[in-house]
Structures are given as C-alpha cells and as structure tokens.
C-alpha cells in the first residue's frame, strides 16, 4: 500500500489536443493523410483526364509519353501522360490520383461503421451479463477466420461493388472493436468512481454514457485509425486479386492488377500505385501510432 502525497500536485495538464498535435508521428502522418485527402477531393483539377478514358493508340506507354488526341469539340490537343499508360491506353497518373478517392472512401467508411457497430455490441457485451458469453463466442468464431479470407469469402458471395467491398471489410473488423470496447467497459466498471456513481443511485444508462463511454473514445479513435489503414490495404488486396471493385473503376489495387501482365517491361504500372498505397497506409498508421502514444498510453500495448 503506497502512501500518497500530501501536497497538491502541480497542475501540468495541458489540453490533450495540444500534446497530440506536438507529436511528430501525428504531425507527419496527419499531414500526409490530409494532403492525400485534399488530392482526392481536388482530383479533377490536378491536370487529370477521365481515368476510364481509353486511348487505343497510346497503349503501354512509358511515363512522360505525349500523344495528340481530339478533344470533345474535335480539336487536336497535346496530351502528356505523366506516368505513362496501361495496356488499354488509360492514363496511369489520372487513375492513381482518382484511386485515392476510392481508397480513402473505403478506409474512412469502414472505420466509422466498424467502430460504431463494434461500440454498440461491445457495450452490450460488457454490461449485459447473460448476453456477454453468447456475443463473445460468436465474435471468437468470426475472429477465428483470418481477416482477409473472411473478406474474400464475403465479396465472393455478392456481386462486386463498393458497398459489398465495404461490408466485406467491415465484418472482420467488428469483433476486434467489440473486444476492445468490452475490455474497457469491464475494467472501468470496477473503478471506484463508477461504484460511487452506483451507490449515489445513478441509473445504468446514465452510468454508461456518463462514466463508461467517455473512456472508450481515446482507444476507439486509435483503433479506428488503424482500421482505416487496414481497410485501405484489404481493399487494395481484393482489387489486386481481381475480386474487389470492378476493374474499370480506378483503384490502386486495380491499376496494379492490370499492370501485372506487362510488369517486366513496364514496372511503373505497379510501382506508382504501389507507392501511393504504401504512403497512404504508412501515413495513417503513423497517425495512429502517434495518437495512441499521446491519447491512450494505457492501451499502447495493442497494435
């Protein structure tokens, strides 16, 4: 039993967010992620062409290739393919830029849905005793199926498309969020301040929202960030394997899948979207790392 200080501790608690924004990982990862988001939003204005436009006379060209095409009004104009073209003559640069849209949409949607659904189920599991073991056995079962395999299986059952892909990626993530929330709830409900709230007659729903729920915010922001990164990766994998979003949609995975055939001669078809993908995932993972270290040191153990 340690004894406790008599003098009031010096108050050094700065605003949490100012500490967060001082963290180098947050700054670095966050800025890159933000830049990518801006690029995705501004895609049409960044000297891009229609990413689905096919130019049969400019197939498999190296970066920097310039072609003359007719525009909508029939005028001949010079077009520069900054990153070359694929085997159908589509502009890789435009496809990579537009690809950011799909990736970020998938990443963010999956993170939001998974966190929200997981939060609700996790709170129920953590507080309703008789439901707990039923829910957790089911979650164990879901977790026993390796994440990517489950996603693959789920997409294979539906006609490929963005919503199907999102759902297929969300489902394997939900049990992880449920476990996290449940463990927070279980540890917090043992805290003396929660027990004090019980003895002053706080009703259970208020108890949950006032004393328990706020404790899940920090770990969930962190977890959500990692889910976002992971979802972007899984979407790219699905597209790359040819079972994700339809091939004509510009996603980084699709561009790479398309580039496989001519990889030996034209490695840039895989290289550029690969770099974009790795950069996005790296940025978001770093953001998550930084957030975890600053927001949530208690849960720094988890990845």
């Amino acid at each position: 039993m340690a004894t406790i200080d008599a003098a009031p501790p010096v108050s050094r608690r700065r605003s949490v967010w100012s500490t967060v924004l001082r963290n180098p990982s947050v700054l670095f990862g966050g800025s890159i992620a933000l830049i990518m988001l801006i690029i995705a939003i501004l895609a049409p204005f960044l000297d891009t062409r229609d990413p689905a436009e096919i130019n049969p006379s400019a197939r498999n060209q190296k970066p920097g290739y310039t072609a003359t095409v007719r525009d909508d009004e029939g005028k001949r104009i010079q077009v520069k393919y900054h990153l070359g073209t694929d085997s159908l003559g589509r502009d890789i640069y435009s496809r990579v830029i537009y690809g950011a849209r799909v990736s970020l949409i998938v990443g963010i949607t999956v993170a939001v849905i998974a966190v929200f659904v997981g939060l609700i189920i996790g709170m129920i599991a953590g507080y309703v005793r008789w439901l707990d073991s039923i829910i957790m056995r089911f979650m164990d079962g879901l977790m026993a199926i390796p994440e990517i395999l489950l996603a693959i299986a789920l997409v294979s059952l539906s006609r490929a498309g963005l919503p199907a892909v999102v759902i297929a990626i969300v489902i394997p993530q939900v049990p992880r969020v449920v476990r996290l929330v449940r463990s927070v709830v279980l540890s917090i409900r043992e805290e003396p301040y929660v027990e004090s709230a019980i003895t002053v007659g706080t009703p259970t729903p208020t108890l949950l929202f006032r004393h328990v729920l706020p404790n899940t915010t920090a770990p969930l922001i962190v977890q959500g960030t990692f889910i976002c990164a992971s979802a972007i990766l899984v979407e790219a994998i699905l597209s790359f394997l040819g079972i994700g979003i339809p091939p004509e949609v510009p996603t980084w995975g699709n561009i790479m899948a398309e580039g496989r055939t001519y990889f030996r001669i034209l490695p840039h078809n895989i290289l550029y979207p690969g770099i974009a993908l790795a950069l996005a995932v790296l940025a978001i993972n770093m953001l998550g790392d930084g957030l975890r270290d600053t927001l949530d040191p208690r849960f720094a153990k988890r990845f």
Binding site: P192, Y193, V194, E195, I198, V200, R210, H211
Partner: peptide, 24 residues
C-alpha cells in the same frame, strides 16, 4: 441507495477524472 454511502481507499480512482468535483 441514499441511506448507505461509501468512501473508498484509493483517492486517485474514486473520482471520475473527466468530471469536475462539483459534477461528481
């Protein structure tokens, strides 16, 4: 519940750190 109140051992965990003393 009103009739019985309890004070715990660990003063550092007995108050919700996110709520003001008044709110508690």
């Amino acid at each position: 519940r009103r009739d019985i109140q309890i004070v715990f051992q660990d003063p550092y965990r007995s108050l919700n750190p996110r709520r003001t003393v008044g709110q508690s």
